[in-house]
Design a protein around this nucleic acid. Sequence first.
DNA 1: CATATTTTTGCAATCGATTACTTAATGTTA
DNA 2: TAACATTAAGTAATCGATTGCAAAAATATG
Lengths: 341, 341
Amino acid sequence: MNKKTTIYDIAEKLNITAATVSRALNNNPKISVATRKLVLDTAAEMNYEQNRLAKALKSGKSFNVGVIVPRINTNFFGSVIRGIEEELYPEGYHIIICQTHDEKELELGNINSLLNLQVDGILMSISNTKHDNNDLFKNVLKKNVPLIFFDRSKNIPGVSSVTIDDFKGAYEATQHLIDQGFKRIAHISNDQKLEIFKNRYAGYKQALLDNGLEFDESLVLESWSKVEQGKEVAKTFLDMKNPPDGIFSSSDFSALGAIQEIKERGLRIPEDIGVIGFSNEPFTKLMELTITTVDQSPIEMGKLAARVFLEEVNNSKRIRSERKVVLDPELIIRQSSLRNK
Amino acid sequence: MNKKTTIYDIAEKLNITAATVSRALNNNPKISVATRKLVLDTAAEMNYEQNRLAKALKSGKSFNVGVIVPRINTNFFGSVIRGIEEELYPEGYHIIICQTHDEKELELGNINSLLNLQVDGILMSISNTKHDNNDLFKNVLKKNVPLIFFDRSKNIPGVSSVTIDDFKGAYEATQHLIDQGFKRIAHISNDQKLEIFKNRYAGYKQALLDNGLEFDESLVLESWSKVEQGKEVAKTFLDMKNPPDGIFSSSDFSALGAIQEIKERGLRIPEDIGVIGFSNEPFTKLMELTITTVDQSPIEMGKLAARVFLEEVNNSKRIRSERKVVLDPELIIRQSSLRNK
DNA sequence: CATATTTTTGCAATCGATTACTTAATGTTA
DNA sequence: TAACATTAAGTAATCGATTGCAAAAATATG
């Protein structure tokens, strides 16, 4: 069978050494124009392609970057990855994608696999599992592999991160509901072990307090980012003696579930109840009743994470600097909350 | 700085050879129980992790697989990739993802990059650019790298593929519209250079003919898979002297665009006009007016593509067999087409 | 034309892991 | 205890590309 051509094959054919071939291919100045041309022509003719594995082994740089996300088939993570790729591809990097499915074991396995693969860096959004210790991450740093968190971050010395200001996003969303005249605003929260949801909760609460509204803990319920779950939570809210007239959800999916439940009960949105989601998933704009939400500019987030990575690998290895990039969220006001036109 | 530990480091520490260390780590039987334990313990203690680059170079197998898709941030491709990963990860493979953005240059570059990276196989959905010749793909085969097409395929000897029966999906969708009493059915098509769209067109046409309905070429228009484009096309349809009363779109996105335009004109769906999309994108189920569509079981498709790949790498290299797996599409009937409850 | 200088090429080690082949160290048997 | 078998560990080559150093060839200089 047709094996791959190596520089040795070219060398043999031309009766020269592999070293010369290598130099010719790498535009090394210490070589005659004639030989270079000869080598280049022969290489093309023999269909030569560099073995990047060998080069990586020799140079200690694989030009591969690992990207770890909870799951790949949501618009948000898909877009972040797209952003990362757009930034890294022109620099010659390739990305290796792993999913954790929010499982600790997989997360651990993925990180180790990526290190084995000699990736030049790891960009990740941590899973929502309890991380008892940070040894796992420190281990990455010890090996001198840049580690960058995006979206779901964790405060670890030496680890850069790119996140959005979840507090601000939540605050503005809640403030908007208040401005629209909603008085009793509930919050569909999510796993408080994750910073992002903790911050959204905090932003919501602060907005209420700053506006002199009562903060009622019974109006905050946790739910997974699922339509069905949102529906369930909405049921609980609507069955209350004193039900809310506004819902700020930490997820578009649960916001949609809530909307469905509200409509099924014959209540009108936004006239009776206002609803806001989080993430700007595509469907929020496509619905008949478009949903107000908070945009996290995922592509931009991916690009920034990639740039932080590039900074870290290109800068002198001696300096371990740490960057915390925080993106501004953007409140996208749509029909589900806009009562005063 | 803390460099990565190699088998030489372990060997040196224990005053033995790297060969012994390697054997101990690989459970080679030719080694004493005592030494093995010693090596294993020391390896753990020194935080040793295998350099898969070196192993790959030596063995000629990288355990990396390249996946090329037009874009990653749509539910369909994201899900296919998820399926591929689910099947390959347990076998020890990692996935390197590339996007073509439907650009020929990028597609070419991606393939070459992946070959350079010494991937063990390439799974791809070809871009909708004109492929004048198949040299590109033949080149991959020549290098003995299994190549598998999924969804967007091309008939090339030696290349396996996993697709859905687009003809059948289109046929059933059209038949369903006919069964619901729609008489004048239009088709929003797409780039006829791609097999999938050609087949959907053909399935649509055949269903009309089989039911004794007139096939009117002016009722077929091409459009990108975009909401806006679908709207434009719908305008053309609705402005006709004799407008259609049913639309079968080759894409969910253009179907949605059409729906928006239809509604804006005060027409009712499905009473006045029935609409069917293609792909079962999540939003089709989430809308207030749920959209009838054709499911392509993307996760299953990814898994099958992965299995075909595994078959090819594991089977004796001598035999180059070629598999054409065709999945059955599933018509998901929802409100946008269901007139007779 | 001889020597000095510059170019061009070759030699050999290296990156880290694996493995056929040897050698050394045990164990077994008569 | 000698002769042989078995087991454990070492030697060195290999995968493909790169690169410091040395050698050879080409060119310049007096």
